[in-house]
Protein backbone atom coordinates (compact mmCIF):
# COMPACT_ATOMS: atom_id res chain seq x y z
CA UNK A 1 0.00 0.00 0.00
CA UNK A 2 1.33 3.40 -0.90
CA UNK A 3 0.46 6.17 1.44
CA UNK A 4 0.25 9.80 0.57
CA UNK A 5 1.36 12.55 2.87
CA UNK A 6 0.05 16.05 2.17
CA UNK A 7 1.37 18.92 4.20
CA UNK A 8 0.00 22.39 3.56
CA UNK A 9 1.13 25.58 5.29
CA UNK A 10 1.87 23.64 8.42
CA UNK A 11 2.97 25.60 11.48
CA UNK A 12 3.74 24.67 15.03
CA UNK A 13 4.08 27.46 17.51
CA UNK A 14 5.31 27.51 21.11
CA UNK A 15 4.40 30.91 22.49
CA UNK A 16 6.10 33.37 20.15
CA UNK A 17 8.49 30.87 18.73
CA UNK A 18 7.73 28.99 15.54
CA UNK A 19 9.13 25.46 15.57
CA UNK A 20 7.65 25.07 12.09
CA UNK A 21 6.47 27.84 9.85
CA UNK A 22 4.38 27.47 6.74
CA UNK A 23 5.79 24.15 5.68
CA UNK A 24 4.26 22.53 2.59
CA UNK A 25 5.25 19.36 0.77
CA UNK A 26 3.91 16.12 -0.58
CA UNK A 27 5.32 12.62 -0.25
CA UNK A 28 3.53 10.14 -2.42
CA UNK A 29 5.94 7.39 -3.39
CA UNK A 30 7.39 4.50 -1.50
CA UNK A 31 10.82 6.01 -1.27
CA UNK A 32 13.44 6.78 1.31
CA UNK A 33 13.25 10.43 2.26
CA UNK A 34 16.13 12.18 3.97
CA UNK A 35 15.00 14.91 6.32
CA UNK A 36 17.97 17.02 7.20
CA UNK A 37 18.37 20.12 9.24
CA UNK A 38 20.52 21.59 11.96
CA UNK A 39 19.75 21.21 15.64
CA UNK A 40 16.48 22.92 16.41
CA UNK A 41 15.52 23.23 12.75
CA UNK A 42 12.16 21.62 13.47
CA UNK A 43 12.80 18.07 12.27
CA UNK A 44 11.47 16.31 15.34
CA UNK A 45 8.54 18.73 15.57
CA UNK A 46 7.53 17.86 12.03
CA UNK A 47 7.90 14.13 12.65
CA UNK A 48 5.91 14.25 15.88
CA UNK A 49 3.05 15.85 13.96
CA UNK A 50 3.19 13.08 11.36
CA UNK A 51 3.04 10.53 14.18
CA UNK A 52 0.04 12.23 15.88
CA UNK A 53 2.04 12.87 19.03
CA UNK A 54 0.59 16.36 18.91
CA UNK A 55 -1.54 18.64 16.74
CA UNK A 56 -0.30 21.49 14.54
CA UNK A 57 -1.05 25.11 15.43
CA UNK A 58 -1.98 26.00 11.84
CA UNK A 59 -2.19 24.45 8.44
CA UNK A 60 -3.18 20.96 7.47
CA UNK A 61 -1.53 17.61 7.55
CA UNK A 62 -3.28 14.79 5.77
CA UNK A 63 -2.33 11.20 5.24
CA UNK A 64 -4.29 9.46 2.49
CA UNK A 65 -6.62 12.43 2.53
CA UNK A 66 -7.46 12.09 6.21
CA UNK A 67 -6.34 13.93 9.30
CA UNK A 68 -4.18 11.42 11.16
CA UNK A 69 -4.62 12.76 14.71
CA UNK A 70 -6.71 10.26 16.73
CA UNK A 71 -7.48 8.42 13.52
CA UNK A 72 -7.01 4.75 14.38
CA UNK A 73 -6.79 3.64 10.77
CA UNK A 74 -3.95 6.05 9.98
CA UNK A 75 -2.10 6.00 13.30
CA UNK A 76 -1.65 2.25 13.02
CA UNK A 77 0.17 2.79 9.72
CA UNK A 78 2.62 5.39 11.01
CA UNK A 79 5.56 4.42 13.14
CA UNK A 80 7.76 7.09 14.71
CA UNK A 81 10.99 5.58 15.96
CA UNK A 82 13.16 7.84 18.10
CA UNK A 83 15.80 7.42 20.77
CA UNK A 84 13.47 7.04 23.67
CA UNK A 85 14.63 6.94 27.22
CA UNK A 86 14.75 3.28 28.20
CA UNK A 87 16.07 3.84 31.72
CA UNK A 88 12.93 2.34 33.23
CA UNK A 89 12.28 -0.38 30.67
CA UNK A 90 12.48 -3.53 32.74
CA UNK A 91 10.94 -5.72 30.06
CA UNK A 92 13.09 -8.04 28.02
CA UNK A 93 13.45 -7.61 24.28
CA UNK A 94 11.35 -10.68 23.59
CA UNK A 95 8.38 -9.21 25.45
CA UNK A 96 8.83 -5.78 23.94
CA UNK A 97 8.78 -7.19 20.41
CA UNK A 98 5.74 -9.31 21.23
CA UNK A 99 3.98 -6.21 22.49
CA UNK A 100 4.74 -4.22 19.34
CA UNK A 101 3.54 -7.14 17.23
CA UNK A 102 0.10 -6.92 18.83
CA UNK A 103 -0.40 -3.38 17.59
CA UNK A 104 1.41 -3.36 14.25
CA UNK A 105 -0.52 -5.38 11.67
CA UNK A 106 2.46 -5.88 9.33
CA UNK A 107 4.95 -6.82 12.04
CA UNK A 108 7.17 -9.73 10.98
CA UNK A 109 8.51 -11.60 14.00
CA UNK A 110 10.73 -13.84 11.92
CA UNK A 111 12.42 -10.83 10.40
CA UNK A 112 12.68 -9.23 13.86
CA UNK A 113 14.49 -12.31 15.18
CA UNK A 114 16.80 -12.27 12.18
CA UNK A 115 17.64 -8.62 12.91
CA UNK A 116 18.15 -9.35 16.60
CA UNK A 117 20.82 -11.87 15.64
CA UNK A 118 22.32 -9.54 13.07
CA UNK A 119 22.67 -6.79 15.70
CA UNK A 120 23.86 -9.29 18.34
CA UNK A 121 21.14 -8.26 20.77
CA UNK A 122 20.51 -10.32 23.91
CA UNK A 123 16.86 -11.34 23.90
CA UNK A 124 16.63 -12.18 27.59
CA UNK A 125 18.10 -9.07 29.21
CA UNK A 126 15.99 -6.16 30.42
CA UNK A 127 16.21 -3.37 27.85
CA UNK A 128 17.46 -0.86 30.43
CA UNK A 129 20.56 -2.97 31.00
CA UNK A 130 21.60 -2.82 27.35
CA UNK A 131 24.26 -0.36 26.19
CA UNK A 132 23.14 2.82 24.48
CA UNK A 133 24.16 1.48 21.09
CA UNK A 134 22.22 -1.71 21.68
CA UNK A 135 19.15 0.25 22.73
CA UNK A 136 19.38 2.18 19.48
CA UNK A 137 19.58 -1.14 17.64
CA UNK A 138 16.45 -2.31 19.49
CA UNK A 139 14.64 0.76 18.16
CA UNK A 140 15.93 0.02 14.67
CA UNK A 141 14.66 -3.57 14.89
CA UNK A 142 11.22 -2.38 15.99
CA UNK A 143 11.10 0.17 13.18
CA UNK A 144 12.18 -2.23 10.46
CA UNK A 145 10.21 -5.30 11.55
CA UNK A 146 6.97 -3.34 12.03
CA UNK A 147 6.92 -2.70 8.27
CA UNK A 148 4.52 0.18 8.72
CA UNK A 149 3.65 1.92 5.44
CA UNK A 150 5.09 5.13 6.91
CA UNK A 151 8.19 4.49 8.99
CA UNK A 152 10.07 7.36 10.55
CA UNK A 153 13.54 7.04 12.03
CA UNK A 154 14.51 10.11 14.00
CA UNK A 155 18.26 9.98 14.61
CA UNK A 156 17.99 6.45 15.93
CA UNK A 157 21.47 5.65 14.62
CA UNK A 158 23.09 8.17 16.98
CA UNK A 159 24.11 5.69 19.64
CA UNK A 160 25.29 2.97 17.27
CA UNK A 161 28.92 2.41 16.38
CA UNK A 162 29.98 2.60 12.73
CA UNK A 163 29.75 -1.14 11.91
CA UNK A 164 26.29 -1.35 13.49
CA UNK A 165 25.14 1.68 11.51
CA UNK A 166 26.40 0.00 8.36
CA UNK A 167 24.34 -3.12 9.15
CA UNK A 168 21.32 -0.91 9.72
CA UNK A 169 21.72 0.93 6.41
CA UNK A 170 22.09 -2.34 4.49
CA UNK A 171 19.04 -3.88 6.11
CA UNK A 172 17.06 -0.73 5.53
CA UNK A 173 17.86 -0.73 1.81
CA UNK A 174 17.18 -4.42 1.40
CA UNK A 175 13.92 -4.44 3.28
CA UNK A 176 12.73 -1.27 1.57
CA UNK A 177 13.24 -2.88 -1.82
CA UNK A 178 11.41 -6.04 -0.78
CA UNK A 179 8.64 -4.27 1.11
CA UNK A 180 8.39 -0.79 -0.39
CA UNK A 181 7.09 1.87 1.97
CA UNK A 182 7.66 5.50 2.86
CA UNK A 183 10.71 5.71 5.06
CA UNK A 184 11.75 9.05 6.50
CA UNK A 185 15.25 9.29 7.91
CA UNK A 186 16.03 12.39 9.87
CA UNK A 187 19.71 12.90 10.43
CA UNK A 188 22.79 15.00 10.98
CA UNK A 189 25.02 12.31 9.50
CA UNK A 190 24.49 13.57 5.99
CA UNK A 191 27.74 12.49 4.36
CA UNK A 192 27.37 8.99 5.72
CA UNK A 193 23.75 8.47 4.75
CA UNK A 194 23.23 10.46 1.59
CA UNK A 195 23.44 7.38 -0.63
CA UNK A 196 20.31 6.04 1.06
CA UNK A 197 18.09 8.94 0.09
CA UNK A 198 15.78 8.98 -2.91
CA UNK A 199 14.53 12.44 -2.02
CA UNK A 200 15.86 15.11 0.26
CA UNK A 201 14.06 17.65 2.42
CA UNK A 202 16.09 20.34 4.15
CA UNK A 203 14.57 22.24 7.03
CA UNK A 204 16.08 25.44 8.30
CA UNK A 205 14.71 27.45 11.21
CA UNK A 206 11.32 25.82 10.93
CA UNK A 207 11.04 26.34 7.18
CA UNK A 208 11.44 23.96 4.31
CA UNK A 209 14.29 25.30 2.18
CA UNK A 210 14.61 22.40 -0.24
CA UNK A 211 12.66 19.37 -1.37
CA UNK A 212 14.12 17.57 -4.35
CA UNK A 213 15.12 14.31 -5.79
CA UNK A 214 18.57 13.33 -4.50
CA UNK A 215 20.02 13.04 -8.01
CA UNK A 216 18.69 16.44 -8.97
CA UNK A 217 20.06 18.05 -5.84
CA UNK A 218 23.50 16.70 -6.46
CA UNK A 219 23.60 17.58 -10.16
CA UNK A 220 22.26 21.06 -9.51
CA UNK A 221 25.22 21.92 -7.36
CA UNK A 222 28.73 22.26 -8.68
CA UNK A 223 32.09 23.55 -7.64
CA UNK A 224 33.93 25.77 -10.13
CA UNK A 225 37.66 25.96 -9.59
CA UNK A 226 40.28 27.91 -11.46
CA UNK A 227 41.97 31.28 -11.80
CA UNK A 228 40.29 33.88 -9.67
CA UNK A 229 39.20 36.25 -12.47
CA UNK A 230 37.97 33.47 -14.73
CA UNK A 231 35.89 31.98 -11.91
CA UNK A 232 34.41 35.37 -11.07
CA UNK A 233 33.50 36.03 -14.68
CA UNK A 234 31.94 32.62 -15.10
CA UNK A 235 29.89 32.63 -11.93
CA UNK A 236 28.79 36.24 -11.79
CA UNK A 237 25.16 35.50 -12.66
CA UNK A 238 24.97 32.30 -10.68
CA UNK A 239 23.64 31.44 -7.25
CA UNK A 240 26.84 31.28 -5.20
CA UNK A 241 26.77 29.30 -1.98
CA UNK A 242 30.36 29.53 -0.90
CA UNK A 243 33.73 30.86 -1.99
CA UNK A 244 37.19 29.63 -1.11
CA UNK A 245 40.40 31.30 -2.23
CA UNK A 246 43.95 30.05 -2.13
CA UNK A 247 46.45 32.43 -3.73
CA UNK A 248 45.15 33.12 -7.18
CA UNK A 249 43.05 29.98 -7.28
CA UNK A 250 39.42 30.29 -6.42
CA UNK A 251 36.82 27.64 -5.79
CA UNK A 252 33.17 28.64 -5.87
CA UNK A 253 30.22 26.49 -4.98
CA UNK A 254 27.19 27.24 -7.10
CA UNK A 255 23.67 25.98 -6.97
CA UNK A 256 21.24 25.95 -9.88
CA UNK A 257 21.03 24.01 -13.10
CA UNK A 258 24.38 24.01 -14.85
CA UNK A 259 23.66 23.47 -18.53
CA UNK A 260 25.92 21.51 -20.86
CA UNK A 261 26.76 24.76 -22.60
CA UNK A 262 27.97 26.17 -19.31
CA UNK A 263 30.09 23.14 -18.66
CA UNK A 264 31.68 23.44 -22.09
CA UNK A 265 32.28 27.11 -21.59
CA UNK A 266 33.89 26.46 -18.25
CA UNK A 267 36.15 23.91 -19.82
CA UNK A 268 37.15 26.34 -22.56
CA UNK A 269 38.05 28.91 -19.92
CA UNK A 270 40.28 26.40 -18.17
CA UNK A 271 37.94 25.97 -15.25
CA UNK A 272 37.37 22.74 -13.46
CA UNK A 273 33.78 21.72 -12.75
CA UNK A 274 33.33 19.26 -9.92
CA UNK A 275 30.40 17.82 -8.06
CA UNK A 276 29.42 18.94 -4.60
CA UNK A 277 28.14 16.69 -1.91
CA UNK A 278 24.79 16.90 -0.17
CA UNK A 279 26.73 17.61 3.01
CA UNK A 280 28.32 20.72 1.44
CA UNK A 281 25.00 21.84 0.12
CA UNK A 282 23.35 21.32 3.47
CA UNK A 283 26.01 23.25 5.31
CA UNK A 284 25.84 26.21 2.96
CA UNK A 285 22.09 26.28 2.58
CA UNK A 286 21.56 26.39 6.31
CA UNK A 287 24.49 28.49 7.47
CA UNK A 288 24.13 32.11 8.41
CA UNK A 289 23.51 34.12 11.46
CA UNK A 290 21.99 32.29 14.39
Amino acid sequence: MTMQIDVKNLSLQFGNHYALKDVSFQLSDNKIYGLIGRNGAGKTSLLSLLASFREPTNGTLKINGEIPFENAKIMQQVNFIFNKDNQDETEKLERVLGDVQRYRPNFDMEYANYLVKKFNLPIDKPIRKLSKGMQSAVNAVIGLASRTPITIFDEVYNGMDAPTREVFYQELLEDQSEHPRIIILSTHLVSEMDYLFDEVLILNKGQLVLHEDYETVVTKGASITGASEAVDAFTQSMNILNTKQLGNTKSVMVYGELRDVDRKLAHQNGLEVGPISLQDLFIHLTEGEE
Partner: peptide, 11 residues
Amino acid sequence: HYVSNGVTRKD
Protein backbone atom coordinates in the same frame (compact mmCIF):
# COMPACT_ATOMS: atom_id res chain seq x y z
CA HIS B 1 3.53 3.84 25.16
CA TYR B 2 0.27 3.14 23.39
CA VAL B 3 0.26 6.27 21.25
CA SER B 4 3.79 5.53 20.07
CA ASN B 5 2.51 2.11 19.04
CA GLY B 6 -0.14 3.73 16.89
CA VAL B 7 -3.05 3.36 19.34
CA THR B 8 -5.38 6.35 19.65
CA ARG B 9 -5.86 8.09 22.98
CA LYS B 10 -9.51 7.05 22.80
CA ASP B 11 -8.71 3.35 22.44
